[in-house]
Amino acid sequence: MDKKVELTAVGGIDKLRVADCIPQQPAPGELRIRHEGIGVNFIDIYHRTGLYPLPLPAILGVEGAGVVEAVGADVADFHVGDRIAYAGIPGAYAATRLLPAWRATKLPDDISAKTAAASFLRGLTAHMLLTRTYPVGRGTTLLIHAGAGGLGITLTRWAKQLDCTVIATVGSIEKADIARANGADHVIIGRETDIVAEVSRLTNAKGVDYAIDGIGGETLRKTLGCVRRFGVVASIGQVAGPIPPVPVEELGPIRSLSLSRPSVMAYTTEQDAYRFATQAVITAIRQGIIPSAGHEYGLTNAAQAQSDLEAGKTTGSLVLVP
């Protein structure tokens, strides 16, 4: 009998329940995947806590990798035994799952399932942020919060390949070392540090061109103060809590800022963009831009994995192994 981890009610990790499950038969246009790795992300926590509600009971997890175990009718591009990865659709915290065939991306033999499972959502997020939300390039200066986390490391490595200057923020000296080792040009340490003053000092009072804020809470307002006139701020998360209302006057006309709230889940619903971006992610994995999984947990320990991620005890990416 296979296992799944089910969310029974909105709340803490105690609302996650391990249960038995039986593999389902794929409908037309679907695949059944047997997972070899499942990514753990903050969006899983947002789903659990009800910030982004799902119909209950629900199986969390929006990325994974494994082997095609069964193929539904009308699927011509995949066969039993194919190795695939995917991202952008809940239902991953289970030994097997059904998946729309168009979501699957064939995985080359030189990329492990665990690496892909912990990389695809972050890779797609980085691709969205660096090519669509604000196309960066030589001369761009970025501010990246949580520079030692899985997404922060990926963004930093990718941005450096594109000849950008990266200013990263981290919560500790140990995490500063990680951010620097992954290419950050400057690191701001400590949650209580005046990041506006530090960014001003590092940019000769100009401000950064682009800031990516996955922290939320009051940090977003501080982030707005770090960006030059006509610069862009991307708000992509709220680890520190709900984002207070931002009056339009804080964006302009004096500052003339653009505030974006991009969603990788929305990005992955665009099939053409998804296909193109997943190939870019595979290339980035091969080039070492996207780090391999930093922490492994058994599938039945999904609650502990979420707890560790939420408490900031981890660096890099997390993966569940069935």
Rank of each mutant, 00 (worst) to 15 (best):
K3E: 08
E6L: 13
L7G: 04
A9G: 03
V10K: 15
I13G: 05
D14Y: 08
K15V: 01
V18P: 12
V18Q: 08
D20G: 04
D20T: 11
C21N: 09
C21K: 15
I22T: 14
Q24V: 08
Q25A: 09
P26V: 00
L31R: 14
I33D: 04
E36P: 01
E36F: 05
G39F: 07
G39L: 12
N41S: 12
N41V: 09
F42M: 12
I45D: 03
G50N: 02
G50A: 04
L51S: 10
P55D: 03
I59H: 08
G64C: 09
G66H: 11
V67Q: 13
A70H: 04
A73P: 03
D74T: 06
D74N: 12
R83N: 08
A85E: 07
A87E: 05
P90F: 06
G91I: 01
A92M: 05
A94F: 02
R97A: 14
P100Y: 06
A101D: 04
L107N: 07
A113F: 02
A113Y: 06
T115L: 12
A118R: 10
A118C: 10
F120D: 06
F120H: 07
A126Q: 05
H127W: 11
M128G: 03
L129N: 11
L130S: 06
P135H: 01
T141S: 14
I144G: 03
I144D: 04
A146S: 08
A148P: 00
G149K: 10
G150H: 05
G150M: 02
L151V: 06
I153M: 15
L155W: 09
W158I: 06
C164R: 10
C164P: 00
T165A: 14
A168T: 03
T169Y: 14
V170M: 10
V170P: 00
I173Q: 15
I178M: 05
R180H: 01
A181R: 13
D185S: 11
G190N: 09
R191N: 08
I195H: 11
A197G: 02
L202V: 12
G207Q: 07
G207L: 03
D209K: 07
D213V: 07
G216A: 04
E218L: 14
K222V: 07
G225E: 00
G225F: 05
G231L: 02
A234F: 00
P242S: 09
P244W: 15
P245M: 11
P245I: 04
P247H: 15
V248K: 15
E250Y: 12
I254V: 11
R255H: 13
L259S: 10
S260G: 02
V264N: 08
Y267M: 07
T269D: 10
T269A: 11
E270Y: 11
A273P: 04
R275I: 13
F276S: 14
F276T: 14
F276L: 15
A277K: 06
A277L: 02
V281A: 03
V281C: 00
I282P: 02
I290M: 14
A293K: 14
G294K: 10
A302C: 00
Q304P: 05
S307M: 13
E310F: 10
G312D: 05
T315R: 10
L318R: 12
V319S: 06
V319R: 10
L320R: 10
L320K: 08
V321L: 12
P322R: 13
